[in-house]
């Protein structure tokens, strides 16, 4: 698997559940490392989370999801073709 997982991240010392507040980019959009791609809420503070690699974003979770740190919420695919394949489902 060459795609790159997008997870709900640990931010600072807080280890409780994290809320996915909103996506900042569309399904299938091309993203680049350092670009904010979604917003989380952790300990009542909202913050942008940036892509840590370049590629095409596939979103796998809806805003409002509250889940533990490390929960997968999407992937970043290295090529558009791989994104198309993943978006089409197994």
């Amino acid at each position: 698997m060459t795609e790159h997982e997008v997870i709900l991240p640990k931010t600072g010392i807080y280890e409780g559940d994290v809320v996915l507040v909103e996506w900042l980019v569309d399904e299938g959009a091309r993203v680049s490392a350092g670009e904010p791609i979604f917003v989380i809420e952790s300990e009542k503070v909202e913050m942008d989370i940036e892509a840590d690699t370049d590629g095409w974003l596939h979103r796998e979770a809806e805003p409002g999801l509250e889940a533990p740190i490390g929960t997968r919420i999407g992937v970043i695919c290295p090529t558009e073709a791989e994104h198309r394949q993943i978006a089409a489902g197994p």
Partner: peptide, 16 residues
């Protein structure tokens, strides 16, 4: 440091 950021996000690196 890039790797620290990625691995820290996963939640199993203690502290900050």
């Amino acid at each position: 440091e890039d790797r620290v950021m990625r691995e820290f996000a996963k939640g199993d690196m203690p502290g900050f």
